[in-house]
Simulated scan of single mutants.
Amino acid sequence: MDQFRDAARAAGATAADADLDAAGHYLLSRWSEPQRHYHTGAHLTAVLEVIDKHAGLAPHPERVRLAAWMHDAVYDPRALGDANERDSAEFAGGLLATLGVPDEVASEVARLVGLTAGHATGEDDPDGELLCDADLAILASDDEGYAAYTAAIRQEYAHVPDDAFKDGRAQVLKALLELPTIYRLEPLRAAWESTARANLERELKAGPQPG
Rank of each mutant, 00 (worst) to 15 (best):
A79M: 03
V74L: 05
H54T: 01
H25R: 10
K205G: 03
G118W: 04
A151H: 02
H60G: 05
L200P: 05
E49I: 00
R78G: 09
W192P: 00
R78F: 07
N84W: 07
P161K: 15
D19V: 13
A110T: 13
H159Y: 15
L96E: 06
H37R: 10
A110W: 07
L66A: 00
H60V: 12
D87Y: 13
G168Q: 12
W69G: 06
A148E: 11
Q35G: 03
S141G: 04
A152M: 09
L188P: 13
E104A: 11
H25W: 15
I138Q: 04
D72F: 00
A152S: 09
A42L: 12
G100T: 14
Y183T: 00
Y149H: 10
P34H: 12
D6Q: 03
Y75R: 10
P208H: 05
D143N: 14
G168R: 15
P59G: 13
A134W: 00
G145R: 13
L177D: 14
L28K: 02
P34I: 11
W31T: 02
R184V: 14
L130P: 00
L173R: 14
F4C: 01
P102Q: 14
A106F: 04
H119R: 04
R154H: 09
L177H: 15
E85M: 00
T14H: 06
D162M: 12
E104T: 10
D125Y: 11
V47C: 12
E129F: 01
G145W: 05
E90A: 11
D17L: 08
A83S: 02
E193K: 02
E123M: 14
P180A: 15
L57R: 01
A110G: 15
K166Y: 00
A46T: 11
T121Y: 03
A140E: 04
